[in-house]
Design a protein around this nucleic acid. Structure first.
Lengths: 197, 197
DNA sequence: GTTCATTAACTGTATGTTCAGTTTATATTG
DNA sequence: CAATATAAACTGAACATACAGTTAATGAAC
């Protein structure tokens, strides 16, 4: 058993374990002592680092949002051709990999908690506004290059996010055995129809 | 305090209280004794009727799904003109009232639980397949009457549900002060664009 | 007089958190 | 460089509380 690591190492370690237990057990089934057992440390140590469970939850959200915002996944400045760049952008937004940046069960869990926890809601709002702004910015560029033809780029960005999230949901409840990609293709095509007129 | 009611009255009464406490406190904050206190009965009585908490949860889901399926909200056979009937149908699917048949916080909560609880997942799948089938059926009719023009009605129904659910999500995180209806109009317009070509 | 509604008194367990204390790493000083 | 101070990492035990669920008993009703 390792000893005397510091906060910079231990805190992410604990959050990672928290995340893993969360995936397996959900919020109802995840306690401090279970997380501690999972990584073979004493429960008190978790309190020592995070003060309480609520803080730990918020810090996990921050971590996951940072993961989600990872810029290398959604910026394609290296692609010269505008049409190619646009396609890469849309493909990524509707890709399985992108949708699984965070475990969908946990994703939904935090959505749910945001209804009663204003702190969580604030963080999620900030994240989605960031995503919307980013998409909007891209659409403005592609619009100026006549790759697409939309009047209101913000509205279009809203619609894209709406479809992305609906897609996540659809794949959970309505995809009868088919893969994620089958329906994502259909959603994507609808978006292109709308963007390209 | 009333006494000696029977199961046919008491069980729905308890489920209603369960639902109310759930809206205010969420799943984490809802215990059997809290529900009992809310309706001024003894906690054991709840166990007496439902045997355990899990059963009560499932029975609540069944009740809410029945509410959701309430046929008078989504059948418009009384409207003679096909165009009018179609519009009434689409308007309802994207209406605030329809989206609030069940409290959205609870809705999300059950989605979330369905990731780890197969029994809940089964019920939700059944409900959404039912809804999809219903929409598909309607689309087939409207297609035959040339009100819309779609090749694959099932795909179209999938897309409508995806947008409906995404809309719920959007209104929670991205509607900056505007009402539900503002963006629902946009989503609806996109659907019509796709259905009508 | 049996069946069902209801309460009362419990049980065992898991929870988050506190507290008191020990060990280790690091910085400061002589 | 060694001695010391200080803060941080970590452990163990104990806490009050809340939880779902059990069992037994009382009361009313067909």
């Amino acid at each position: 058993m390792r000893k005397n690591q510091n906060a910079a190492i231990r805190k992410p370690e604990i959050l990672e374990s928290y995340y893993q237990v969360l995936i397996q057990q959900g919020f109802e089934g995840t306690s401090i002592s279970k997380i501690a057992k999972h990584m073979d440390i004493h429960p008190s140590l978790i309190i020592h680092y995070f003060k309480n469970k609520e803080n730990m939850k918020l810090e996990l959200i921050d971590l996951l949002i940072e993961k989600y915002k990872s810029p290398d996944m959604i910026s394609f400045e290296y692609i010269e051709d505008d049409e190619d760049r646009f396609n890469a952008f849309i493909d990524t937004l509707f890709s399985f990999e992108w949708s699984r940046t965070v475990d969908p069960g946990i994703h939904f869990g935090f959505y749910y908690l945001s209804f009663r926890n204003k702190e969580i809601q604030r963080r999620f709002k900030r994240m989605f506004v960031w995503l919307r702004d980013h998409i909007q910015e891209q659409l403005i560029y592609f619009n100026s290059r006549h790759i697409i033809d939309v009047r209101d780029e913000k509205q279009a960005a809203d619609l894209i996010i709406t479809l992305m999230e609906g897609l996540e949901f659809h794949s959970h409840f309505l995809s009868d055995g088919q893969s994620f990609d089958t329906f994502s293709q259909i959603a994507k095509k609808s978006v292109l129809d709308i963007l390209k007129k």
